[in-house]
């Protein structure tokens, strides 16, 4: 790290001579080391999935009794119609979602309408960006994927917000440690479809489970769980809901079978998929 020791990395609100804000870059590093999060924009809604690294065997496990997500749910809801999955520092993510909930409540109070995902992404972008301006604060150590169906237009939206405050709309978004392989998988998934056979949330739940399994491959020594949520016009009436019960079990089953197949494939020297996973 060339910046270390120069003094320009000690504070927000100070540029380095070559025009960088190192604090923001360090925050992005925190995200790169965080657990993987992915989101996919579908025909009828959005699906979010996160990799939950099991930090200790003493933690409560996901099981059908506790509705598949356990007491340690990571994906959160904003309003009723938007979901948020974060990679990076978990408490920063919690705070960000609290702020998002306030924004959503304030918007609804003013306009008596659920906040459109774009508006939320924009407001959160301004909030996160403000934390890159002052030396009294540090930037957020998270990248957040916001996804939801706008109840007014019934259109699905997916946004990813980064520590710098920048946000873009995505068809498929991935962040965290396994983002490279996840992005590759998302690209393959999206390019395999055309306008005549757009992907549905029902399929995406399974595919994202698979992608989380693939993204975890580089991190194999650690135990993990998969948490999935979705927001579908038809299946959840536009409400953001955790995927639970048999639906979750089926998705995980599918993910396991596909990833073991992928390994079998590579044994059979299927070079294509092997390469894709490594970059």
């Amino acid at each position: 790290m060339t910046s270390v020791g120069t003094g320009y990395d000690l504070s927000n609100s100070v540029f380095s001579p070559d025009g960088r804000n190192f604090q923001v870059e360090y925050a992005a590093k925190a995200v790169e080391n965080g657990a993987t999060s992915v989101g996919l924009l579908c025909e009828d809604g959005v699906v979010l999935a996160v990799e939950k690294l099991v930090a200790s065997k003493l933690l409560v496990k996901a099981s059908p009794q506790n509705k598949g997500s356990g007491a340690n749910t990571k994906i959160q809801t904003v309003g009723r119609h938007i979901g948020c999955a974060c990679s990076g520092l978990v408490p920063d993510g919690r705070h960000l979602v609290n702020r998002a909930r306030e924004e959503s409540q304030q918007f609804k109070q003013l306009y008596k309408r659920d906040i459109p995902p774009v508006a939320l992404a924009d407001r959160m972008g301004q909030y996160v960006q403000a934390h890159t301006l002052y030396n009294s604060v540090r930037p957020f150590g998270v990248a957040a994927i916001f996804g939801g169906v706008d109840p007014e237009t019934a259109e699905p939206h997916l946004y990813m917000l980064e520590p710098s405050g920048v946000y873009w709309g995505y068809r498929g978004a991935a962040t965290g440690k396994g983002r490279q392989s996840a992005k590759a998988e998302l690209e393959k998934l999206i390019s395999s479809r055309d306008d005549n056979s757009p992907i549905t949330t029902l399929e995406a739940v399974k595919e994202l489970a698979r992608i989380i399994y693939i993204a975890h491959e580089d991190n194999k020594e650690k135990e993990f769980e998969v948490e999935i949520s979705w927001c579908s016009r038809e299946h959840t009436q536009g409400k953001h809901t955790l995927v639970q019960g048999t639906m979750l079990e089926e998705a995980l089953e599918y993910a396991k079978s596909k990833t073991s197949n992928a390994q079998d494939d590579s044994d059979d020297s299927d070079a294509d998929s092997d390469d894709a996973m490594q970059d």
Partner: peptide, 13 residues
Amino acid sequence: EELETENNYDNSH
């Protein structure tokens, strides 16, 4: 409406 929304937050039950 707020009461209902907030009851839903972080509550899988």
